[in-house]
């Protein structure tokens, strides 16, 4: 089953082409916004997946890259009138710079320590943005006056933004697919499994990690620009928040890290659920959807750490593991 799936993986990529045509079939503004949201989270989760899923670098600071993309393109547009199509690449390059800085400083750190360091970097950035009021608009953020036009990346209907987000998702999926099948992909798979062993076999783990986090940061920043010029308001409390970072990781983990399709599957399932919960319990229980997110996250990492994709790839193995779960785990020496 798994091998068959891998053989047809190029076909799976076609699934990422379909959303490009969504506006041909849907014209209702609310539905288009809903589709945009799914595509947006699928794109960001896929971006996180490039570093978190493939290299095992569990970042909780990806909001920094996303925010750098959003703030750079918006500032270039507002202050200098530079088109976001150019600004998004400037933001991407700045995000890569920030990612390489984080990567270079935290190379020795693993797992939870890496996650903590990324939180710290993202928080420094958030606090800096809040306090550089003259440039960034502080805590109130920046709003982009609506001026539809292709050059401004703003569209009078929602269809344009949906197509743009679908294209971004397709690009990220193609990058992921290419990485997976490249020498880099094998290096990442090896270092994720056992870093020392990978090094002993001659894998340049430092280079592989830096490339994966740089790629991930670049596409996260592109997502930031696309977000900013659709929502038209960026505030540090949303685009640079820990919540943003956690949600990116959460979608990818629930769908299945280290797979091309997994993050998209996570978004397809989680976004409608959150929309339903938010619409249904908006007045009564405002935090309900995040509570459900948390509960799903706990259950997934406890019982299905490889995400929903593991059910598709290896259904029998997953069932076996679920049953075995009951038996007490044999303790290795700590988790070292």
């Amino acid at each position: 089953m798994a091998r068959m799936l891998d053989r047809f993986a190029p076909l799976a990529l076609l699934l990422f082409v379909l959303p490009l045509f969504a506006p041909l079939f849907v014209s209702d503004s609310y539905t288009l916004h809903f589709i945009w949201k799914i595509l947006f989270w699928a794109a960001l989760a896929s971006a996180w997946n490039l570093a978190g899923g493939y290299a095992g670098q569990f970042s909780l600071g990806h909001a920094a890259f996303f925010g750098i993309g959003a703030y750079t393109s918006v500032l270039l547009y507002l202050k200098l009138g530079i088109s976001p199509w150019l600004g998004m690449f400037v933001g991407g390059i700045l995000a890569v710079g920030f990612a390489l800085l984080i990567g270079a400083l935290t190379l020795r750190l693993r797992g939870a320590f890496f996650a903590l360091a990324t939180i710290a970097f993202a928080e420094v950035l958030r606090i800096a943005v809040v306090n550089l009021r003259d440039l960034t608009g502080g805590a109130e953020g920046l709003s982009v006056p609506f001026a539809p036009g292709l050059a401004n990346m703003m569209f009078s209907g929602r269809a344009g933004s949906v197509v743009l987000m679908a294209a971004l998702l397709l690009v990220i999926a193609l990058v992921t697919f290419a990485v997976e099948r490249s020498r880099l992909g094998y290096a990442l798979a090896a270092l994720k499994e056992d870093e020392e062993a990978a090094e002993a076999l001659g894998v340049d783990t430092i280079r592989a990690k830096l490339i994966s986090i740089a790629l991930s940061a670049f596409v996260s920043a592109l997502g930031g620009t696309a977000y900013a010029f659709y929502i038209l308001l960026i505030e540090p409390s949303t685009v640079l928040s820990i919540g943003m970072s956690v949600e990116m990781a959460l979608m990818a983990i629930i769908g299945g890290m280290g797979t091309v399709l997994g993050p998209a599957i996570g978004a397809i399932l989680i976004v409608p659920l959150s929309e339903y919960l938010r619409a249904e319990f908006a007045g009564t229980f405002q935090g309900l959807y995040l509570l459900v997110y948390g509960a799903i996250l706990i259950l997934m990492v406890m019982f299905m750490p490889n995400g929903l994709m593991s059910v598709v790839r290896d259904p029998r193995g997953t069932m076996r593991r679920l049953k075995r779960r009951r038996r007490p785990a044999r303790g290795r020496n700590g988790d070292a």
Partner: peptide
Amino acid sequence: QGAPQVAQIFA
């Protein structure tokens, strides 16, 4: 305890 890294952080 002793579960994969991702479980230890994200649980």
